[in-house]
């Protein structure tokens, strides 16, 4: 979709058009979900966060002034919501003992979906990265955002983005080798 079309959709949605808002949701829902997942590392939470993001966008859209790009604004809201979710989770983890190993569950789900062993290991290496590194790898490497865009979304310097990306990919590679060797 062209930038002009997106601009028009934003204007229409700001004017109260539900159809335009819906189109905006459909345009960005997958990337918002991917980024949310990058933080929360759980499909149910990612769904909830992604929905929450668009509800917030719906209420805040009229105040959006287009000083930053819409995507940057949207993904910044996503990272804030996802970080809030992580804080909530930390609080509840302190109160409750987890019932099952989330990695074991995820691997089982993936195996059920007939994924190759290597893909499962690659994903596991991604999920084991620290939160911010994982978000940078997803945004920069998987979603193809520029360093500047990622730094705007995550509110950190471009240098930090570059460092996290470099370290993240290196760690993933190392982790993958360990996993393949069966040492972990």
């Amino acid at each position: 979709m062209s930038a002009d079309r997106e601009r028009q959709l934003i204007l229409d949605a700001q004017g109260g058009s539900h159809t335009a808002f819906r189109e905006l949701v459909e345009l960005h829902m997958r990337q918002v979900y991917d980024l949310a997942y990058g933080f929360v590392d759980d499909h149910d939470d990612a769904e909830d966060v992604a929905q929450e993001v668009f509800v917030k966008v719906y209420h805040a859209l009229k105040s959006f002034r287009r000083e930053s790009g819409f995507s940057t604004w949207l993904y910044r809201i996503t990272s804030n919501c996802a970080l809030d979710r992580l804080k909530q989770r930390k609080r509840s983890v302190a109160r409750f003992v987890p019932m099952e190993d989330s990695h074991a569950t995820r691997v089982a789900v993936h195996q059920a979906a007939n994924q190759s062993e290597e893909n499962i290991l690659i994903e596991r290496s991604l999920h084991e990265l620290p939160t911010l590194q994982r978000a940078v790898v997803i945004l920069r490497h998987m979603d193809g955002f520029s360093t500047k865009q990622v730094s705007d979304i995550l509110k950190c310097s471009e240098g930090t983005v570059k460092t996290h990306l470099h370290r993240g990919l290196k760690k993933m590679r190392k982790k993958l080798e360990h996993l393949k060797d069966g040492t972990v």
Partner: peptide
Amino acid sequence: AMDLFGQKLRKPSEYRNELYWQLFAEKV
């Protein structure tokens, strides 16, 4: 690393089926 992860990494959203995405806006 880029070759390896570029080809193999599947986006989290790809684990959801098409019906899920069709209903997503409804849910919102």
